[in-house]
Amino acid sequence: MTEKILLGHGSGGKMTHQLIQEVFLSHFDNDILSVQSDAAIFPHTSNNHLAMTTDSYVVNPISFPGGDIGKLAVCGTVNDLAVSGARPLYLAASFIIEEGFPVADLITVVESMSNEAQKAGVSIVAGDTKVVNRGMCDKLFITTTGFGDLTADRHHIASGRHIHPGDVILINGPIADHGMAVLSAREGLDNNGAIQSDCTSLNHLIQTVLEAGINIRFMRDATRGGLATVMAEVARSATVGIELSEAAIPMQEPTRGLCELLGYDPLFVANEGKVVMIVDGHQKEPVLNIMQNHPDGRHTTIIGEVTHDHPGMVVLNTSIGGRRILDMLSGEQLPRIC
């Protein structure tokens, strides 16, 4: 570890992992936490378990094409529960507000939280408010904590322990929209609204797939660190190999263009409405069908498969027919110089 916290420690890549391992896990270690899934799973009654998760939202700017910090604070936490196989039920929300922040803006944010909660079918049942001196935080930070219930047959999803060679990997639509929409808004890169954040709650889509009897081995929402980081984490923890097809990974043209222009690798750019699903290979037709017929999964594609080969490693078959490995991000992504 470095002596001081650097921005790279928040990138979701290798430095974040190092921070979690060396500072947090080494002090808080217990059987529930050490699974390191999107939500913690613990027993509630003999049949049912509870899933719990928490996340802080510090996005700058607080409003961006396709959403705002309020919508994000609800759907981000709902999604962490949903990808663990849980049914999201209740949220708590804490607000750290900078002195001088307009009340009208706060109401706008809270309205969009309320709308998204309604859409996701969760209730915001507890909360806290702190106001800090001007300059002590950037406008508004929100932390949401979520609870959901989890039936016994879905415990394995969060840990990924059932992932098996021959499984297929799906994603429910184009990648990198959220990260590039926020970047555009922050840097004033006007693209006439062509790039919209994908932030949305995925619990209804996921419930539909689960209720159809699809054997989901693992799910994760590809947020900070992007699709590549999720895949690298899976390969590492499940000791299987992963093959991805670059040509099969969906992307919208404006987003692809902006990534090209700035030298960003879209595989590492954040999403807020994308679930990566690993499913029994025998069920690839039915799962595609179900997802493509759901409004949040219309553009679902199969992007790769789990292999016996190269355990621990993600190999990307490039669109020109080459092969290379995909690893986690080291530090932050930077635009190119020349």
């Binding site: 490039t318 669109s319 020109i320 027919g321 080459g322 092969r323 290379r324 190119r336 020349c338």
Partner: peptide, 15 residues
Amino acid sequence: GGHTMVIQKTGIPGL
């Protein structure tokens, strides 16, 4: 360096 990156990123050496 831009060439180096494209060569590695697209997997040209293996071709």
